[in-house]
Computed example of a mutant assay.
Amino acid sequence: MKNNLYLRAFEYSDLNLLNLIRNDDILFQSTLGNKYYISSEYDKKWIEDKIFNNSNQLYLVICCKGIDEPIGYICVTNIDYINRKAEWGGFVISREFISKGLGTDAGYLLLDHLFGELGMNMVYAYVKEDNKASYRLSEKYGFKKDGLIRDFVFKQNRFHNAYIFSMLKSEYEELQLREQETSIS
């Protein structure tokens, strides 16, 4: 399935999709981020920041081959090139493409890039305790649950706990090897 997708840098032409996704109340509920009302002018500046000020973050647009249109975005933040680690920021997909496995596949493309191209040794993620889909997805990717952080974020008028997950490059390479062996046999 990964062959049906590609990742690319943000362009100003992605503004409409981005603004639609970032203002979607249903998508917002599962994230750790706080609710902001985001104007298209604000998102234009946000895209500009992702284009020109990306030394410790990587925001990429997810596109389907064939239709060559963006369907969402994926990101990592807090990239630390000295200690070779990065924080998985997750992905957001337009509602019409949810539950088709495209976000999952985009995640594998990003992990390939982080471990293979950028030389990261560890990728870590925070997952809201009640976000069962992200919890399962983190495990599917091969992340290990390291613990629970209590009252991690204040959102929707209350505090929420979050799990912290991590994956080492050696663990990812081991998963890739097993996947290759399975596809050969």
Rank of each mutant, 00 (worst) to 15 (best):
K2M: 13
N3V: 08
N4W: 03
L5Q: 07
L7G: 03
L7Y: 03
L7I: 05
R8W: 05
F10P: 01
F10D: 04
D14E: 03
L15W: 07
L17G: 11
L18S: 11
N19K: 00
N19W: 01
N19G: 01
I21Q: 08
R22T: 05
R22G: 00
D25V: 10
I26C: 03
L27E: 04
L27D: 02
F28T: 03
Q29H: 09
S30G: 13
S30C: 00
L32T: 14
N34Y: 03
N34L: 10
Y36E: 15
I38A: 00
I38V: 09
S39A: 09
S39E: 07
S39T: 15
S40K: 12
S40A: 12
K44W: 05
K45V: 12
I47G: 08
E48W: 06
E48V: 02
D49K: 11
D49L: 07
I51N: 03
I51F: 02
F52V: 09
F52L: 11
N54F: 12
N54I: 04
S55H: 13
Y59P: 01
L60A: 07
V61F: 05
I62W: 03
C63A: 10
D68L: 06
D68M: 07
D68R: 01
E69M: 11
P70M: 07
P70V: 00
I71W: 06
G72Q: 10
Y73W: 11
C75F: 12
V76I: 11
V76R: 04
V76F: 11
N78L: 10
I79K: 05
I79Y: 05
I82F: 14
I82K: 14
I82N: 12
R84P: 00
E87K: 12
E87V: 00
G89I: 02
G90W: 06
G90L: 08
F91Y: 15
S94D: 13
R95Y: 01
E96D: 14
I98W: 10
I98V: 15
G101T: 04
L102F: 15
G103Y: 10
G103P: 05
T104E: 14
G107P: 06
G107S: 15
Y108D: 05
D112G: 09
L114A: 00
F115W: 09
L118D: 04
G119T: 06
M122Y: 11
Y124W: 13
V127G: 08
E129W: 04
E129Y: 14
E129M: 05
N131F: 04
K132Q: 14
K132T: 14
S134T: 13
R136Q: 12
E139A: 00
Y141S: 09
Y141H: 08
G142F: 09
K144S: 14
G147I: 05
L148C: 06
I149Q: 11
F154Y: 15
F154V: 01
Q156K: 14
Q156P: 01
N157D: 14
R158I: 08
A162Q: 05
I164E: 09
I164A: 02
I164K: 08
I164S: 05
S166I: 03
L168N: 08
S170R: 12
E174I: 04
L175M: 10
Q176K: 15
L177T: 15
R178I: 10
E179A: 13
E181L: 15
E181F: 10
S183R: 15
S185V: 08
S185C: 10
S185R: 14
